[in-house]
C-alpha cells in the first residue's frame, strides 16, 4: 500500500488484520468444511482489502487484483471443492491449544522479521507486511500439519497470504502473479485424487 494515510490506512490495517485473524482460526477448525469456509472467508477479506486499497489509491492494478482474488477464492475454489465430498468425515488436525500457540508464535516471528524494514515514505508497509508474512507462515503450518482435505485449504490459505503481499506491491505484475498462483491452486483442487494423503 504505497503511502496511505489516515482513514484509508486504518481501514487497510483493519482488513489486513481480518485476513490474518481468519488465517489464525484455520488451524483450530475441526471439520474439513469449516476449514474450507474459513479459507473462503479469508479470500473475501483479502479481496476486500485489495478493493479498498484500489479505491483509496485509484489503482487499476489493485482493482484487477481484487477481482482476481474474489473470482478465484470466493467463486472458483469453493466450486471445485464442494462441501458434499468430505462433510461426512470431520477432520481433526490437532487439539486446539497447540495450534493456537504455534500460530501465535508464528505471528510473533513475522512481526519480528519485518521489524527492521524501513522504507522512507511508505509508512504502513511494515505493519501490513507483518500481517501478510504471518498469514503465510500460519498457512504453511496448516499445510504441514494437516492431513487430507485440510491440506488443500492450507494451500488456498497460503495463496491468500501471498495475495495480501501482492496487495502491498499493488503492481500489474503482482496481480498477474496472484492470478497465476490461484490458477495453480485451482488446478490442484480440480485434479486431486479421490482420497488425498
Amino acid at each position: 500500500m504505497p503511502g496511505g494515510e489516515g482513514l484509508a490506512s486504518d481501514v487497510g490495517h483493519l482488513l489486513f488484520g481480518a485476513a490474518l485473524a481468519l488465517a489464525f482460526a484455520l488451524p483450530t477448525r475441526r471439520g474439513a468444511a469449516a476449514i474450507r469456509n474459513m479459507a473462503r472467508a479469508q479470500s473475501a477479506s483479502v479481496a476486500t482489502a485489495a478493493a479498498w486499497q484500489a479505491w483509496a489509491s485509484g489503482s487499476a492494478a489493485l482493482a484487477a487484483l481484487a477481482l482476481v482474488i474474489l473470482a478465484a477464492g470466493v467463486g472458483v475454489l469453493p466450486w471445485l471443492l464442494p462441501p458434499a465430498d468430505d462433510d461426512e468425515a470431520p477432520v481433526s488436525i490437532r487439539p486446539t491449544a497447540l495450534p493456537v500457540t504455534a500460530a501465535a508464535a508464528l505471528v510473533l516471528l513475522a512481526t519480528l522479521v519485518v521489524l527492521p524494514v524501513h522504507l522512507p515514505g511508505v509508512t504502513p508497509l511494515r505493519e501490513n507486511l507483518a500481517f501478510a508474512v504471518a498469514a503465510v507462515l500460519v498457512a504453511l503450518f496448516v499445510l504441514a500439519t494437516g492431513r487430507g482435505p485440510p491440506r488443500v485449504a492450507g494451500l488456498w490459505a497460503l495463496a491468500n497470504g501471498v495475495a495480501l503481499a501482492g496487495v502491498i506491491v499493488g503492481s500489474p505484475a503482482a496481480a498477474a502473479g496472484v492470478a497465476g498462483l490461484f490458477g495453480l491452486v485451482a488446478i490442484g483442487a480440480a485434479v486431486r485424487p479421490a482420497t488425498v494423503p
Binding site: G121, V136, G177
Partner: peptide, 20 residues
C-alpha cells in the same frame, strides 16, 4: 505448490525492496 507460493512471496518482497 507450497514452494512456488513461498517463492512468489519472495518475488513480491524483491519488488518492494527495489521499488524506492
Amino acid at each position: 505448490g507450497a514452494g512456488l507460493a513461498v517463492a512468489l512471496l519472495g518475488v513480491f518482497l524483491f519488488a518492494l525492496a527495489a521499488g524506492p
